[in-house]
Write a protein that binds this DNA or RNA. Structure first.
Length: 571
RNA sequence: UGGGGCGUCGACAAGCGGUAAGUCACCAGCCUUUGGAGCUGGCAUUCCCAGGUUCGAAUCCUGGCGCCCCAGCCA
């Protein structure tokens, strides 16, 4: 019936069709083949140091650095620091740390657009001399009016025909600080009737009497991004300028500048930015989450920032893998966050050591186990990785199990502990529930069980099988811990889908953080370090939080295990 | 009503004239000392729509339709 399809699949695998491909790599490969740029590939990641990097930026970072690696090229890190009123050194530092954490290295190629302020000024003088730029005295409001609208052409500025000499003089005096903020700007002289608004005499320089994080008070005119960006790429010899689709409309302008200047012209190629379900990725909105205290800072484990994901326990490998799998295209799309969580589990599954932690403890007394006896049982650290070895865990008469693992009146498919039922304790023995102890309100507070000494290490000598396996912790040896359970920050796939008059904050999930205290974890965890990742058996992956101090253990749930039981139960 | 871009499974995404890859999600089963992992199978007779070209079209042509972006001295 479908054998056709199957054969075809196998054939594809043999042929090696696995090489990931996308339209940008195709272009690059063609360029290499044609010998364009002498076959060089040189990209760059150009962040503005005005905020923290998030998973959307990671798409660009992974692609720019990744493509350079793949084609034996180079990738620069360049800070686009053209607006001193918004940029700070703090952000420069966090951005560099995040890129390194992701696993990329710009070696000695760290640049700043501000490195080029001098060259840019010379370029501007050149354009004025060529009659391609002029100083305009219109106010910001007037410039907007003169720009026209989407459907109507703009009008030319009355200052558009100033002489080259006057423009040169005025620009120099702008640079020398003779005019107040906003008094004049330098504009490109292109076409006020252009359908593309970016070509309607865009502003190149504005007067800003503001200190810059690097050039301090050297300048009081600053280039706009549009004027700085393309030339910065050109100066660095970038061959392929890969950027957000938002700049597609700007490409004709960048090309125009470069052609007028007669300098190296990188090829700009745009790709769609990343969107994720249940997530917001706009710097402005993320800032609001922090400033209005919906979260506890930029590195709150619920934030999609790289610092938040890191604290949550994400691995750089899982993020890189995710970026690889979502592909690279131009169409606007929203990736299911389940894919990100999948690449995370996939990575953590092979590298996280298994450990036992009881989040919601229920005491169990094993009545036929000797009072003072303690056994050191052997436990495999990671069934997916033999080299991870094993450890000893203490077992004794009194233990804690997960409250959810016991039901007095279980439904049909429940194969955990219930009165009269036998289950296996992971790495230990079979136990059977003999008696249920409740408090006056009827709540189960303790179980009395019996164990079968012949089932040590978890297997019965008589061959009888048991359906359930529970994790546990020895009551007398367990260590207390606080566990933080996270859920999506928003209740809607699209956080921006809101009623009239409301904004994304109305979709914030008020249960996105649950703090559990009094959790009981196995003693080996006492020596863990912040950042260490584990699989809490049957629960999920957890990461020790830096809030851990003075013996108070704090763990973040990075992501839960797939929970088939929850699905069965839900039906 | 100007300019730019995009439309292939629930979500991503290959495909580049030869008869719809893969991944996630989902469903079913096997296996299991994690109801984890793993394994097996299922999941687009159809590619926004309509015409046309062709022996043959998701791929080429024509005309529609839909969606996204642009009117910062932000980036």
């Amino acid at each position: 019936m479908n054998s056709n399809k199957k054969e075809k699949k196998n054939a594809d695998i043999e042929v090696g069709s696995t090489k990931p491909t996308n339209f940008i790599k195709e272009i690059i490969e063609e360029d290499i083949e044609k010998g364009k740029n002498d076959g060089r590939v040189h990209t760059r990641f150009p962040p503005e140091p005005n905020g923290y990097l998030h998973i959307g930026h990671a798409k660009s970072i992974c692609f720019n650095f990744g493509v350079a690696q793949e084609y034996n090229g180079l990738c620069n890190l360049r800070f686009d620091d053209t607006n001193p009123t918004k940029e700070e050194t703090e952000y420069v530092d966090s951005i560099m740390a995040d890129i390194r954490w992701l696993g990329y290295d710009w070696e000695n190629r760290l640049y700043y657009a501000s490195d080029y302020f001098g060259t840019l000024y010379e370029y501007a003088v050149d354009l004025i001399k060529k009659g391609k730029a002029y100083v305009c005295d219109l106010s910001a409001d007037e410039i907007r009016e003169y720009r026209g609208t989407l459907t109507e052409p703009g009008k030319e500025s009355p200052y558009r025909s100033r002489s080259v000499e006057e423009n040169l003089d005025l620009l120099e005096r702008m640079k020398n600080g003779e005019f107040p903020n906003g008094a004049r700007v330098l504009r490109a002289k292109i076409d006020m009737a252009a359908g593309n608004l970016n070509m309607r005499d865009p502003v190149m320089y504005r007067i800003l009497h503001a200190g810059h994080h690097r050039t301090k008070n050297e300048w009081c005119i600053y280039p706009t991004y549009d004027w700085a960006h393309g030339q910065s790429d050109s100066i660095e010899g970038i061959t392929h300028s890969l950027c957000d689709i938002a700049f597609e409309d700007h490409r004709p302008l960048y090309d125009w500048f470069l052609i007028q200047l007669g300098v190296h012209k990188p090829q700009q190629i745009e790709f769609a930015r990343l969107n994720l379900t249940y997530t917001i990725l706009s710097k402005r909105f993320l800032r609001r989450l922090v400033e209005e205290r919906y979260v506890n800072g930029w590195d709150d484990p619920r934030m999609p920032t790289l610092s938040g994901l890191r604290r949550r326990g994400y691995t750089p490998e899982s993020i890189r893998n995710f970026q690889e799998r979502i592909g690279m295209a131009k169409r606007a799309s929203v990736v299911d966050i389940a894919l990100l969580e999948h690449t995370l589990r996939e990575d953590l599954n092979v590298r996280a050591n298994r450990v036992m932690a009881v989040l919601n403890p229920l005491k169990v007394v094993i009545e036929n186990y000797p009072e003072d006896k303690v056994e050191e049982l052997n436990a495999i650290n990671n069934p997916e990785d033999e080299s991870a070895g094993s450890r000893k865990i203490p077992f004794s008469r009194e233990i804690y199990i997960e409250a959810d693992d016991f039901m007095e009146n279980p439904p049909k498919k429940f194969f955990r502990l219930s009165p009269g039922n036998e289950v296996r304790l992971k790495h230990a023995y079979f136990i059977k529930c003999e008696k249920v102890i409740k408090d006056k309100s009827g709540k189960v507070i303790e179980l009395r069980c019996s164990y079968d000494p012949a089932t040590k290490s978890g297997e019965a000598t008589d061959g009888r099988k048991v359906k359930g396996t529970l994790h546990w912790v020895s009551a007398g040896h367990a260590v207390d811990a606080e566990v933080r359970l996270y859920d999506h920050l928003f209740t809607k796939e699209d956080p921006n889908e809101v009623e009239e008059g409301k904004d994304f904050t109305s979709n914030i999930n008020t249960d996105s953080l649950k703090v559990l205290s009094g959790c009981k974890v196995e003693p080996s965890l006492a020596s863990a370090k912040p950042g260490d990742r584990f699989q809490f058996l049957r629960h999920g992956y957890f990461c020790m939080d830096p809030d851990t101090k003075n013996g108070k253990l704090v763990f973040n749930r990075t992501v839960g295990l797939r929970d088939t039981w929850a699905k069965v139960k839900g039906k």
